[in-house]
């Protein structure tokens, strides 16, 4: 197995690394002082296990877990016991180690990871390119079906019982819900970043802390959707 370690404290990373060195078939590929660098790494690399500190500035451990699709096994490392219940809400989290971590407890954790990998059902990976989807969407306006190309849609905004579909040239007001239109949109192109907004991911001009700029539209990013947006970005 291979693993990475994420912890904002160098001393803590060194300790986990030392514990890993005592396990025969476990290699530490890299360690990270913050979650963002780890996300960039995981966009291009595959690992079996992540040892993850929960309490980190800006982007904490749970924010990080939410960014992962087809997540590796995660072992949380923390000096707080308060997060244990929340931790087990995530399928990928297999154990919760309270610092200071003893060798004996760490070995148990490794066994849990191995067991969970062995018992893991085969998961079909999502392959966006092979999805059976067309390139356009028909919307019903005044009994007229109007064809919109996915690529022309910039964003969709929920407004009460209606949604507004914004393209470069026009805005269409449709009696429908954001949830329903989301089901018709290819995940490769579209992402919900707020309870009232779905954006065409390819139309982003720039991103500030809590908002995305698409053409002249400033779209808010909700805290819960931010990790997924960060995961999808091709960060340098």
């Amino acid at each position: 197995m291979n693993c990475i370690i994420i912890d904002d404290e160098e001393a803590a990373r060194l300790i986990v690394s030392q514990l890993c060195s005592k396990v025969n078939d476990l290699d530490v590929i890299q360690d990270f002082g913050n979650a963002i660098d780890a996300i960039k790494f995981l966009n291009q690399n595959t690992v079996d296990v992540i040892f993850l500190d929960i309490h980190m500035p800006n982007f904490n451990g749970f924010d990080f877990v939410q960014t992962l699709k087809n997540s590796p096994k995660i072992v949380l490392t923390t000096s707080d016991t308060n997060f244990a219940i929340e931790a087990y809400e995530y399928e990928s989290i297999v154990d919760y180690l309270v610092k200071p971590i003893t060798k004996e407890r760490f070995e148990k954790s490794i066994q849990k990871v191995k067991n969970s990998i062995t018992q893991q059902p085969k998961i079909l990976t999502q392959d966006y390119d092979n999805q059976n989807i067309g390139e356009d969407l028909y919307i019903n306006i005044d009994r007229r079906l109007i064809k919109l190309k996915f690529n022309d849609i910039q964003l969709i905004e929920a407004k009460g019982d209606y949604i507004e579909v914004k393209t470069v040239k026009e805005t269409y007001r449709v009696h429908n819900t954001l949830k329903k239109i989301k089901e018709k949109l290819p995940e490769k192109l579209f992402l919900q970043i707020h309870r009232s907004y779905i954006i065409n991911f390819t139309k982003i001009i720039d991103i500030e802390d809590n908002s995305v700029l698409i053409e002249r539209n400033v779209v808010p990013i909700s805290r819960s959707n931010r990790p997924e947006l960060m995961r999808r970005l091709n960060l340098l």
Binding site: E9, E10, A11, L14, I15, Q18, L19, K22, P100, T102, K103
Partner: peptide, 24 residues
């Protein structure tokens, strides 16, 4: 004591830890 238990005689690890904690 805790570091020595983890080190199991690994002097390099022990020294590295001391260096980090003296710095951090």
């Amino acid at each position: 004591n805790y570091i020595d238990q983890l080190a199991e005689g690994d002097i390099e690890f022990r020294e590295k830890f001391i260096e980090i904690i003296k710095n951090e």
